[in-house]
Design a protein around this nucleic acid. Structure first.
Lengths: 146, 146
DNA sequence: TCCGGATAGCTATGGCCCATAACAATGCTG
DNA sequence: CAGCATTGTTATGGGCCATAGCTATCCGGA
């Protein structure tokens, strides 16, 4: 990345031997890449996640979405406001305090475009991994947080 | 986490099938855990990384450290200042513009304490992973960013 | 039926991590 | 020696997350 030739020094670095550290670095590197691509749609990664989940679960609540994605209710507010301002989602009152979320036509189109980018990206990620390790990544990762 | 019983609704969620998304979630979850433990030492994760690398490479430069850890020079400044203010590192001029970094005695002790926490944490992480997937995690992750 | 606890949506605020731009001073190389 | 690269630094902003607190509403049990 930010390496010149003259100043690249071999350094003793035990960090990449630590799964936790490699996890951090891998997540950061891949997030940056995917983020760039989604930015061409005017979306952040979390926006895409929300659009996908609304598409799969019409009329979900902001709170339910937050629970599923582990996003605090407080942080859902500006997120949904952004999607609303762009005309990607609509909110309809369910009762006096809850509101149902659903995609607009534009939101559905944007979601499908994001899904295309994401799936292509996931394929590239897997392609980077040596075949014998490839199928183990997802179950190993999911064991760490689900 | 933030789930009640009454309000936990089964939602269609294709996201955990995506390695990139699971990577993100796993990294965030584990980082939060490790962060809590390192906070008992008054350290952030990045602080621990820096201390470990200085210990392994006495007299490294701030710039070289930044290259190794993929941290911008600009962002090394407050980081090193914090470690310096706590008496964990020293800086000695190498020439008119570079400075050598090295651990103080307190820094070495703090680094070893951090290393203990980190290794224990890594062991716990691996223990969560089903045995048949375990050994594949590190090589798969490293293939994604190195 | 009514009341207290739980929930929904929201505002405000701060921390951490990262990125970019710019600058002066210094080192290195042709 | 002149020009380019590097170092350390300041300033600034964005993205993401956490917490605290508020009001209004819903719900379940006495």
């Amino acid at each position: 990345m930010s390496n010149s030739n003259r100043y690249t020094v071999i350094m003793r670095d035990p960090l990449p031997q630590l799964p936790g550290y490699s996890l951090r670095r891998a997540a950061h590197a891949t997030a940056a890449e995917l983020g760039e691509r989604l930015a061409t749609l005017g979306l952040r990664q979390v926006d895409a996640s929300v659009l996908i989940l609304i598409a799969e679960n019409a009329d979900v609540t902001a709170s339910a979405l937050g629970r599923q994605l582990d996003i605090q209710r407080a942080n859902m507010v500006p997120l949904l406001k952004r999607l609303d301002d762009e005309g990607l989602i609509e909110r309809q009152p369910l009762d006096g305090k809850s509101q149902a979320l659903l995609l607009t036509a534009a939101g559905h189109a944007r979601m499908e475009a994001a899904l295309g980018i994401i799936h292509a990206f996931e394929d590239e990620l897997l392609a980077r991994i040596p075949a014998r390790h490839r199928e183990h990544l997802l179950p190993a990762l999911n064991a760490l947080w689900r």
